[in-house]
Design a protein around this nucleic acid. Structure first.
Length: 424
RNA sequence: GUGAUUGUAGCUCAGUCGGUUAGAGCGCCUGAUUGUGGCUCAGGAGGUCGCGGGUUCGAAUCCCGUCUUUCACCCCA
């Protein structure tokens, strides 16, 4: 075979798309209930948007972006989006969405690009759905975003998950905590692995994220950021937790949860699943009050959001045994032609009935009657009608219900309404 | 990027110590008397054994390279 998909990318085949549509439909339904509207942004942006937005210390920006020049002599640098939050904030600022309503609530279902080595639940082109609530600094917004995310998983039937929750405080808290953490780690510096040593100066909070078993004791005994929170962040966090309790959303406090992206502040959360292997995050998010200013806004723009990986959700649905329950759509009726004259009739009739909203199948290969019946069965059609000279002359048709094998005679003018009634 | 791992029919997989026409199940197609699907039975189509090179009288099988798959590190959804 000559051509194939590029490493780390996948086709979503006709047999899989019903499940994707089910996920998208469920997510959209819940976004709608929470008053979120869809936003669609371009698939590539100015590279600087991500440099400024995501933060240059992250690996996403450092080595995982698909960056290109639109032409060889151009100075412009473009990048296939590796995440959505920066794009959404860019759109918010560009179109002054905040001037039209004080709180802007948007969601997206879109594909993203990261040049990582593919692995379970990790692809180079992948899909996320997510939402951003821009304009409110209040804990109600945090709680609602989290609850909305959880409702989607809940309604899809995903059970074996754990919601991790933490607060990173405001910028001052993070600065203070950074110093405290460095003081704590400094005497143990020699014990750190190479990656952690590098992070020690660049981004010491990320050391808490390390999976290195030798570091686990050290990390477990590290000072906790929750103990360093400023008063406002502390009460903000308490209120978020209270709302989650009220909503019946279960969570665990995870002191080590710091999240990779630089723009997070205060609330941080992550939903993990044991079905996923090493890439165990189904979704995550948090508050990012500083992002707007980083992208050039004149004042702080409070915002909170989440993102969920759809390929990972698929893995979870698979192991929960839910994916197999999602069936492709089935035809209402298969029109079976017995002669060339009948073929003409079923083509015209199929077209007319499709206009009326029915899903009508016909055989495009002019195959035998037996083959056409087999096809009707294979497709899972509810009804089949065999059309031959008799029917065309008498106007009386045998309507066969393939689910029950019952067959009954119907006058031509009553066929459509009969099928509509019985398939509605 | 580092380290492992995989590749045989549309799918899931057998294939002995290197040996002659590479198999199975599922799926697909056709048929089992004249106008009826599902079950059953019979038959059929479908493979450059990932690709390129090497060793050998002979390679799906051994060696090298390459691409790909999967997994872990890393990173993250």
């Amino acid at each position: 075979m000559k051509f194939q998909t590029i490493t780390g990318t996948k086709d979503i085949l006709p047999s899989e798309s019903p499940l994707w549509q089910h996920i998208e439909h469920t997510a959209r339904s819940i976004f709608k209930r929470f008053g979120y509207s869809e936003i669609r942004t371009p698939i590539f942006e100015d590279t600087n948007l991500f440099l400024r937005g995501i933060g240059e210390t992250t690996d996403i920006v450092g080595k995982e972006m698909y960056t290109f020049k639109p032409s060889s002599e151009s100075d412009e640098s473009l990048t296939l989006r590796p995440e959505m939050t920066a794009s959404v904030m860019r759109a918010y600022l560009q179109h002054s969405l905040g001037a039209q309503s004080p709180v802007v609530k948007v969601y997206y279902i879109s594909k993203l690009f990261r040049k990582e080595k593919p692995q379970k639940g990790r692809y180079r082109q992948f899909w996320q759905f997510g939402a951003e609530c821009i304009g409110s600094a209040n804990p109600e917004a945090d709680a609602e975003i989290i609850a909305m995310m959880m409702m989607i998983y809940d309604e899809l039937g995903i059970k074996s998950t754990m919601l991790k929750l933490n607060s990173l405080g405001d910028i001052e808290t993070r600065k203070r905590y950074r110093a405290i953490l460095q003081d704590y780690l400094r005497p143990h510096f020699d014990k750190l692995d190479a990656v952690s040593k590098e992070r020690f100066e660049k981004n010491p909070l990320r050391i808490l994220d390390s999976k290195n078993p030798d570091l686990q004791d050290l990390i477990a005994n590290a000072p906790r950021i929750l103990d360093c929170l400023d008063e406002v962040s502390k009460s903000h966090f308490e209120t978020v937790k209270t709302y989650l309790d009220d909503f019946g959303v279960k969570y665990v406090i995870e002191h080590r949860l710091v999240r990779g992206l630089d723009y997070y502040s205060r609330t941080a959360f992550e939903l993990v699943s044991s079905d996923l292997g090493a890439q165990d995050a189904l979704g995550g998010g948090g508050r990012y009050d500083g992002l707007g200013e980083q992208l050039g806004a004149e004042k702080e723009i409070p915002a909170v959001g989440f993102a969920s990986g759809i390929e990972r959700l698929l893995i979870a649905l698979e192991s929960a045994g839910i994916s197999e329950k999602i069936q492709p759509p089935k035809p209402d009726v298969m029109l079976v032609a017995q002669s060339p004259l009948a073929r003409g009739w079923i083509m015209k009739t199929a077209h007319a009935w499709r206009k009326e909203g029915l899903a009508v199948e016909t055989d495009l290969l002019a195959r035998s009657l037996k083959a056409q019946m087999r096809e009707a069965n294979r497709l899972g059609a509810t009804f089949a009608i065999i059309v031959g000279e008799n029917e065309l002359q008498t106007g009386k048709f045998q309507l066969k219900n393939l689910l029950t094998s019952e067959q009954k005679e119907i006058q031509q003018e009553n066929l459509l309404s009969e099928i509509k009634n019985r398939t509605a």
